[in-house]
Write a protein that binds this DNA or RNA. Structure first.
Lengths: 252, 252
DNA sequence: AAGTGGTCTAGACCACCGA
DNA sequence: CGGTGGTCTAGACCACTTG
């Protein structure tokens, strides 16, 4: 017997899965109830058990049903709620294709949180945070132009980072994790656009007033406490932030 | 022959998958290289093809490998390391806190893909794509200034969108999904910074030459085909793109 | 043409569960 | 105990990619 009689190149288990999904959607198999057993599906569609299982696997992957040996298949939801997700293995992945970069430390000092800084760190008013400034170059040698000017502020209690920050290839968030022995729990990224201030423009060998991407990155600890904030300024045409969002079916 | 000789109740395909994962981790199968074929795995572990496939399925589910009929199984990563993920329920969520926006359609025409457009749509050279231009305002009434100027190009075969695009509250990607009866599979977002061109500046009531965020959004179909591309231009200070990345605990 | 992964069949034994 | 899903075998044909 041929694998599929009618619609060529559409797998049998796909059409079976779609049929079952429609019937769930229509309430023929209500949420909380049971899907027919594998054997019943085999008989109904005249398919082997492998094909029936593959069809039901589609539903489980979509989170529509759950299965338990000895019990059966329980309907969990009428329809899938699709979500798009993006993932990175490392905060430095946010630099996308420019992951390979070289960092040159410019200096360090202390910043009093007042004035303009209150917009960045409203909860740290009156405090004094250590600041590190640096330039980021494309990987490899050569006198290429920098792609970013970075200011990194770290929470006062992490000032010990100062002793380690000179090590090349280390990012601040890695140092924080090292110091704390804990992972950065989340990071929040805010992207805006600015005119290049004169001082930064000089460092970047760019024209003052030219447009630039400004990327603020807040590093948060397990209790949502602010560990560090990095301010990256990228001159026009030297940087492009790329994110890929993928449709995710196995939503809850 | 018994299904599994040694470790009872641990499926054979699980142990095979773990063995393969270890060997990938150790570099025995380097990233970018090929995993042994199914038949080779069958012979090596003395298992049937079903079991071998089930083992490799574990790896594909984890994103460690991808498979292509006629080619083989390609190693994608040494280990599961998607530590941080960001998720949105809907592409319009990328507008973050400005999700509530009002759209004013300005006009529609056809664009020949040549010159500057080749940078945006290099694979569509010589084609003619329908274009819709619009302004996006903050929600609610009042004569507020627009937060974005948007050009949307759709694949020529989706020109029928023209008939529906006048409906308010509908986004282009929703119309595409409606037309195609399929979800947008992925979207790729590219963020750069530009100087406001004079014509756009006038529409946005902004100063020509002022910095602006440019967000390109490519909408991709199931086979990675380009369905549509939207070009959003946001004047300085009127828009901020916020993304929150959350540490993923269930990653290995 | 040869080899890959994708689909499918018809069997089988098992661990688990509820009556 | 009988029925469920979970695992597994040994075949088979197919669509696809590459030489």
């Amino acid at each position: 017997m041929p694998a599929h009689a009618i619609s060529k190149s559409v797998p049998r288990y796909i059409t079976v899965a779609q049929t079952l999904m429609q019937e769930i959607e229509q309430g023929k198999f209500p949420v909380g109830g049971m899907l027919p057993t594998e054997i019943e599906i085999c008989e109904r569609f005249a398919i082997s058990r492998y094909t029936a299982r593959e069809a039901v696997r589609q539903l489980t992957d979509l989170g529509l049903v759950t299965r338990r040996a000895g019990v059966g298949t329980t309907i969990q939801a009428k329809s899938v709620n699709a979500r798009y997700t993006a993932s990175i293995s490392d905060p430095s992945d946010l630099f996308a294709f420019t992951k390979q970069t070289r960092v040159q430390l410019l200096g360090e000092d202390q910043v009093e949180i007042k004035g303009e800084w209150l917009k960045v760190l409203p909860d740290a008013a009156g405090q004094s945070w250590p600041r590190f400034t640096s330039l980021r170059y494309p990987a490899g040698p050569g006198g290429k132009e920098p792609i970013a000017y970075t200011e990194t502020l770290v929470q006062p209690s992490y000032a010990a980072i100062r002793d380690r920050i000179h090590r090349p290839g280390q990012t601040v968030y890695q140092l924080i994790e090292e110091l704390r022995g804990e992972k950065v729990h989340a990071l929040q990224q805010e992207i805006t656009c600015v005119s290049l201030p004169k001082k930064i423009a000089e460092l970047l060998h760019a024209k003052p007033g030219a447009p630039a991407l400004r990327v603020l990155r807040y590093y948060l600890g397990a209790d949502e406490s602010l560990l560090s904030v990095a301010i990256n300024t990228h001159p026009q045409d030297r940087f492009k932030l790329t994110t890929r969002w993928q449709l995710n079916w196995n939503a809850e």
